[in-house]
Amino acid sequence: MNFFREITQKPWLTTDGPGGEIRDHGAFALPKATVGVRVFLVVVTVLFSLFAVAYSDRMAVADWRAMPEPWLLWPNTLMLILGSVALHGASLSARRGRMDDLRSRLCLAGAFSIAFLVGQALVWRELFALGYYAADNPANAFFYLLTALHGLHLLGGLGVLAWTVTRIYGGLEPEKFKRSVDLCAVYWHFLLVVWLILFGLLLFT
């Protein structure tokens, strides 16, 4: 769909003939779930961008004390990457109709993601133990806030993933779960990118 061409039409002139030449309604040639997920990703992007703006604004004040980055964040990042890779693999096997691969890869992706979340929780525990509280410094508060928000988004994704898996076991038609798996993969890649940016923000500030 070419938005600008669409909105320059003159609707009062363009009455269709009685039959065949009904106008195309000009939707995107995409499944609606795909469009939905893309719109959602735009919203989430806006959300995290605004956090990033707030972060850099607050960072400029003199009381900012950067936090140490626990080494555990690195293996966590690896988990998230592996989760993304597994889902990518899953969407390939869905396309090729390899059901066994598909199931194992989906479960693997779920496992890596859960590992990531558990890892993040451990990071929190470690930081608490070292006495880094949200009240002490905005850098700490941002760390907890952003990791929590990112984790919640991943948790939501896991919910959808679990639902997809149960539906696949329940014998959903391939056409449909192919799309679901694809969209899960897109969402995971997106959250991976968000995480990498957040991680970068934490590392370099």
Partner: peptide
Amino acid sequence: GLNYVVTVLQARTRGMTLMR
């Protein structure tokens, strides 16, 4: 909101162009 936007974009019936 996701519903409203995607419905307008993707679920219009035949002949219902944006400018209609």
